[in-house]
Design a protein around this nucleic acid. Structure first.
Lengths: 214, 214
DNA sequence: TTCCTCGGATAGCGCCACTATCTAAGCAGC
DNA sequence: GCTGCTTAGATAGTGGCGCTATCCGAGGAA
């Protein structure tokens, strides 16, 4: 498969594919001679993943490169690779520790993890970028005077744990060993828009049931 | 309160506040004379909401203007205002109807709503931007060969319905009538990062429990 | 009167995801 | 071989977005 074929089968322009190659999101094709390179189904699949991450998941190109780099790092074991890939995903701003809303948010998040009994997350808390994102988001809500505390968040945490269990079950039954890391990344990034849309739909539905459409 | 005070109390630079005023995200202050305008706590609160939408919720400025316009539209009843505001939120790309993955995704989403018994959503389906977003996201997953069908999504839908019920309960108990529309917007936009972070944390936690940290 | 500060208008910046253009090498048909 | 089209690769440019820096004239304080 040549670049033009890859473009046709993926629906991505050759110019954009070249851009992804330059940026290291897509491994180079097998060079046949000075003007021809050969691509295979693996390239096609990777290209679709890249597009999904960037367009559906809104992941910045630089972040996608980093994440995919971890996915491909054969020198690491599966668990580490997965962790590293997920670790690289969030790109939220640093919280401003001088802001009292941030301090309060951190306290509540720590209490939340204790309430939920998420020991691993508590241990990793000081380092985890996801933990940081949560603090930033909670701080923003508290700044708007919403009493968003650990007790209030705990049921949400439980529900998301149920969601996560489903994700992992699905992963175990449907993905081959080789695909699991890739699938976990897809799950973390692409299930998100699905969950968000379902959440909004559920809000609309329940709101209509409670208050009518008017 | 003058512009400089508003800036100090919110932590947003005067240049940025002026930008928001220009863009209509913030109503103009009460003009005292040619060189002075007076702002009040309402402005401060609105400014914080704007920052939260843009920075935490990643809502584009143009979309935020539209959403806030609906929130402020006193000519409409509460339910309509809320619906209009939420309706304006998602800004996903149009699905390409010629793509078979999109067609298949639409079928599965329609089946999903039937399975869940979400009648309101089914009725509004052809118009709703949220519905469209869901189709786009599911199509992306299907293109990656994940067998993402109605039966698989239904439990996620049930879980998100539980989340939505909590949202609405919270809204009923904690928000005054006047704040409800604003709060619903905040819920739709700002709970999202919280849910996402909880989801990721739950994935990490459950993954560590199942497979160890290694 | 002098100087500083204010609000408002305008133009510009920096980042990012592409995209258009150019070049030289190959290959197909004659 | 020669012509002409296509290819891969390099480089510079584009458009949108969220600010941000600068300038201007009006007030207010010393």
């Amino acid at each position: 498969m040549r670049l033009a074929d890859l473009s046709k089968r993926s629906g991505v322009s050759t110019a954009t594919i070249k851009y992804y190659l330059r940026e290291g999101l897509l491994p180079p094709g097998r060079q046949i001679n000075a003007t021809t390179a050969e691509y295979d189904d693996g390239h096609l699949r990777r290209l679709r993943l890249v597009r999904a991450l960037i367009q559906v998941g809104k992941v910045p190109v630089a972040t996608a490169r980093e994440v995919l780099g971890h996915v491909d790092d054969e020198s690491l074991g599966r668990t580490i690779r997965l962790g590293a890939a997920l670790w690289a995903l969030p790109q939220d701003a640093e919280p401003d520790e001088a802001d009292p809303a941030v301090t309060a948010a951190r306290t509540e998040v720590d209490r939340l993890l204790e309430l939920l009994g998420w020991e691993t997350s508590r241990e990793l808390a000081p380092l985890s970028p996801v933990h940081r994102s949560l603090v930033v988001a909670v701080a923003a809500l508290r700044r708007l005077d919403y009493p968003w505390d650990a007790e209030l968040m705990a049921p949400y945490g439980e529900l998301m744990m149920q969601v996560a269990r489903r994700d992992l079950d699905f992963m175990e039954t449907h993905a081959s060993e080789a695909e699991k890391v890739e699938m976990a990344v897809a799950a973390a990034v692409l299930f998100q828009p699905v969950l968000r849309a379902l959440h909004r739909l559920a809000q609309e539905e329940e709101s209509a049931r409670r208050y009518g459409i008017e």
